[in-house]
């Protein structure tokens, strides 16, 4: 059980997150949605220990993450950051192996179990054939899978993803999210994922948390949170929810202004 309780974070004088509480169970995908600047990335960065928390707690099975070292945290919680250029001169295999940093000694020697974990992660994400290629030679979709593989190689029970489908084309978006869905089930991971595309949220998420201006506006099952009223309040945009299409969850259609 991954539990964020009353999380408050500020940048200087501005409060970026106020009293946000979220829980994610194992095997579950929780989608974090909200307009730009609502605090989605801030939440992921605060939870992963990159920025300071003003108050509140992040607990994993009762263990307070504020009390653990970077290394211990990285064995509990893996992060797939927003798309950005990877160290271009590393090969894919080197990159994924560095996901094992928290398991390695300070010389960075890879033991057999580290190599195994890296290869397992590469095969899960379908990038084994790219192992010897340099990151700079990869497409955006491939780089995103490398980042996912690096986080999987950490073999953590919790995975945080920050808008992982940005910059991917439709095929890669769907493949990526399907892969994440499978991983949640097969590996029993607790997954917290910031997403922009509300229809993808509707399709892939078990539960949804809607952040607006740093506060949790609603949370629950997709059908409970993705309502016309909630989305209008959050995004200042009228939408229509269409349900009953065969083989589809409810679909969110924005209206022209």
């Amino acid at each position: 059980m991954f539990e964020i309780t009353s999380l408050t974070v500020s940048y200087g004088a501005t409060t970026a997150l106020r009293d946000v509480s979220i829980r994610v169970s194992s095997g579950e995908i929780l989608a974090l949605i909200g307009p730009n600047g609502a605090g989605k990335s801030t939440l992921i960065r605060a939870v992963s220990g990159v920025i300071k928390i003003d108050s509140g707690q992040v607990r994993v099975d009762g263990l307070d993450l504020a009390s653990v070292s970077n290394g211990e945290r990285a064995r509990i919680l893996g992060v797939v950051p927003q798309a950005q250029p990877l160290g271009g001169a590393f090969t894919v295999e080197q990159t994924v192996l560095l996901g094992r940093t928290a398991h390695m000694n300070w010389l960075g020697q890879a033991r057999p179990e580290d190599r195994q974990a890296a290869h397992w992660a590469m095969s899960k994400t379908g990038i084994e054939h790219l192992a010897g290629r340099r990151n700079a030679e990869l497409s955006g979709g491939e780089q995103q899978r490398v980042l996912l593989a690096r986080a999987l190689a950490q073999q953590t029970p919790i995975l945080l993803l920050d808008e992982p489908t940005n910059h991917l084309d439709l095929q890669h978006q769907i493949n990526f999210l399907t892969l994440v869905r499978e991983l949640a089930g097969q590996e029993n991971l607790a997954i917290l994922m910031a997403l922009h595309d509300l229809n993808q949220v509707s399709m892939y998420a078990d539960r949804v948390a809607l952040l607006v201006a740093g506060e949790l506006m609603a949370s629950g099952a997709p059908v409970e949170v993705l309502t016309e009223e909630n989305l209008h309040t959050a995004y200042h945009t009228r939408v229509q929810i269409v349900s009953g299409l065969e083989g589809y969850p409810p679909v969110i259609l924005p209206r022209r202004v």
Partner: peptide
């Protein structure tokens, strides 16, 4: 050497990978 390898991803990711940056 190993520290520098991890730092190539930037300080934020290095921290998330478990390095005492």
């Amino acid at each position: 050497g190993h520290y520098l390898n991890v730092l190539q991803f930037g300080e934020e990711q290095a921290k998330q990978l478990g390095l005492s940056v």
